[in-house]
Design a protein around this nucleic acid. Structure first.
Lengths: 152, 152
DNA sequence: TTGTGTGCAAACACTTTGCACCCGT
DNA sequence: ACGGGTGCAAAGTGTTTGCACACAA
């Protein structure tokens, strides 16, 4: 929050109640989320007059990304956000059954990435690496499912 | 094309003129493209009665993906397609200045990916790796730009 | 002839924008 | 009081869908 206030002041922007509510909520948890989830959570948390509107959620999320506090990813054509500030670089495992994202970090990946860039005369500024597959939990479910089918 | 006919027949689907036109066009070039580009190209190529409509383009692209002939990627929230059939696995360098995609292949990346999956009990089925940065051409442009500015 | 495919227009999901009013500074 | 911020509704994108007609099998 202090970090965001700093950013806002530097940009001559204002510290308003909707921004405060949103930022506080976003940084009270550490999960990945999308705009819709956030809008809904804010809606049931603060109904009535102090609710934060849909456009303001989108506007503030963009500001948080610009401020370097959130990282925005596109997963299946929809924007997903995660904490960026004070959070180590990492990549993602995406379970295509349940949609869960988990994280991992690999220095080797960075080395590989930079080596590829160098070879191609490409100035690397970042990357996106998503490993698709099935998480442990869904593998278990699928196995149970299969057993049932096998009994028929 | 033969491959697609095979797929269509297997699914009890029909080989129609729009599908033929689209497939022929898509596989006459080897670049990355999005739905809009394809729609426009088809429009100026075959105007009038034998033009392919927007919905049909989207429907057929989805079929081609299902048939394993095209690969679909999301880049910045928009779908981009590339040939898949008989095309080696590869990943992408994405120039954030001009939007150009180039390709590279790395066995090491696959090994790394599978190792990460194994460590986390994740059954890996695929991945998406996009390296962002500036391509050689845009680096040159930027340098020219900078020189001009320096002279002021 | 049968039922899939097509074009059209409209619906869709997600995100952004125009505008009158509100509120931090 | 000023100028940016907000909510509302409406406009944008990119993509999908309902429907009546067209056409491949």
């Amino acid at each position: 929050m202090e970090r965001f206030e700093e950013y806002l002041q530097a940009k001559g922007k204002r510290i308003t109640q909707p921004r405060r509510i949103l930022v506080e909520h976003v940084f009270s948890k550490h999960e990945h989320f999308d705009a819709d989830a956030l809008i809904e959570e804010l809606a049931q948390r603060d109904a009535g007059p102090k609710r934060v509107s849909r456009p303001t959620v989108y506007r503030t999320l963009n500001e948080l990304v610009e401020a370097g506090l959130l990282r925005k990813m596109d997963i299946g054509g929809r924007a997903v956000y995660e904490h960026d500030y004070g959070y180590p670089d990492h990549d993602h495992l995406y379970c295509t059954q349940c949609g869960k994202l988990s994280e991992f970090h690999s220095e080797e990946l960075i080395r590989l990435r930079d080596a590829v860039g160098r070879e191609q005369g490409f100035r690397v500024t970042g990357h996106k690496f998503i490993v698709n597959g099935t998480c442990q939990e869904c593998q278990r479910k699928t196995r149970r499912q299969k057993r049932k089918v096998d009994l028929i």
